[in-house]
Simulated assay, not measured.
Amino acid sequence: MAFEFLSSLDTMTAFLLLVIFILFVFSMKKVFSVLMNLVVIGAVSLLFPVVMNRFFGFDIPIDSDSLISFVLLGIGVYFVYLVAKSLYKVLGMAERAGKKYMPKGKKEEPEREPEEKADNKKYKEMEKELKEREKELAKKEHEIQWKSKLQKEKKRSDWTKEYASLEEAKHPKKEVKTRPAIIEPLPVIEHKRKKKKGKK
């Protein structure tokens, strides 16, 4: 059996061996992905001067030295990207751990305001109250004026109605009598029936 040697090992060593195996597999996967990315970046870096000369009209020398320099530049940029990415992840994890485990600082007590600020606050509050009262009084005055106008209009309408009723009493309208229509009876026309002559 391929795993016969595991039976001779202790449980602790077997567990450590399993952990190392898992880490090795994932690390090699990461290494192979990095190598594949390096191959792709090297190929793209080689094509960069050709594309720039052919399609954009640049005059970049296409010799072995220039091509190698472009390849090294692309690989260097890729490694810088990997380092920055790993640092960003580490800093993010450290920040989260610090927020969880660092003790929270005590809340600072609010400073007491001096007497001048307290007096200014009181004056401002009093001014606000006075303004609110003025607004309420203005609203009440407006309501009173509106009600008085309505009452005057009602009185005028009542006066006009009384005047119209007095005028009607002084000058009553004459009723026009209508004569009933006389309907004459139609003459009755008697139709004489002719006697039928009998056959002889």
Results as ranks from 00 to 15, higher is better:
residue 188 V to C: 01
residue 35 L to H: 07
residue 107 K to E: 14
residue 63 D to C: 00
residue 196 K to S: 07
residue 79 F to T: 04
residue 191 H to F: 15
residue 135 K to T: 07
residue 40 V to H: 10
residue 149 K to M: 07
residue 106 K to F: 09
residue 113 E to C: 02
residue 197 K to W: 04
residue 80 V to Y: 13
residue 131 K to S: 13
residue 81 Y to C: 06
residue 179 R to A: 14
residue 66 S to Y: 12
residue 111 E to I: 11
residue 52 M to W: 03
residue 10 D to P: 03
residue 103 P to I: 06
residue 124 K to E: 15
residue 79 F to D: 03
residue 138 A to L: 08
residue 113 E to R: 13
residue 166 L to K: 10
residue 166 L to M: 11
residue 125 E to A: 13
residue 26 F to P: 00
residue 199 K to E: 15
residue 182 I to K: 07
residue 136 E to T: 06
residue 25 V to G: 01
residue 2 A to P: 09
residue 40 V to F: 09
residue 93 M to V: 12
residue 123 Y to R: 15
residue 158 D to P: 00
residue 166 L to I: 09
residue 115 E to Y: 14
residue 120 N to Q: 15
residue 69 S to H: 10
residue 126 M to V: 08
residue 19 V to N: 02
residue 35 L to M: 14
residue 159 W to A: 11
residue 72 L to G: 05
residue 117 K to C: 04
residue 152 K to E: 00
residue 65 D to H: 13
residue 175 E to A: 05
residue 113 E to K: 15
residue 65 D to I: 15
residue 140 K to Y: 09
residue 87 L to A: 13
residue 24 F to G: 04
residue 104 K to L: 13
residue 134 E to Q: 13
residue 72 L to N: 11
residue 45 S to W: 01
residue 128 K to P: 00
residue 181 A to S: 12
residue 66 S to N: 12
residue 190 E to D: 05
residue 29 K to I: 10
residue 144 I to A: 04
residue 193 R to S: 11
residue 41 I to Q: 05
residue 33 S to C: 05
residue 113 E to P: 05
residue 25 V to L: 08
residue 63 D to P: 00
residue 157 S to D: 05
residue 122 K to T: 07
residue 19 V to E: 03
residue 162 E to C: 03
residue 180 P to D: 08
residue 46 L to V: 13
residue 53 N to L: 01
residue 63 D to E: 03
residue 12 M to Q: 11
residue 172 P to L: 01
residue 78 Y to P: 03
residue 108 E to Y: 05
residue 84 A to W: 12
residue 136 E to L: 08
residue 198 G to T: 08
residue 102 M to P: 02
residue 45 S to F: 00
residue 188 V to N: 04
residue 174 K to V: 04
residue 101 Y to F: 14
residue 90 V to L: 15
residue 161 K to S: 05
residue 21 F to N: 03
residue 44 V to N: 09
residue 187 P to H: 02
residue 165 S to G: 03
residue 175 E to P: 02
residue 126 M to A: 11
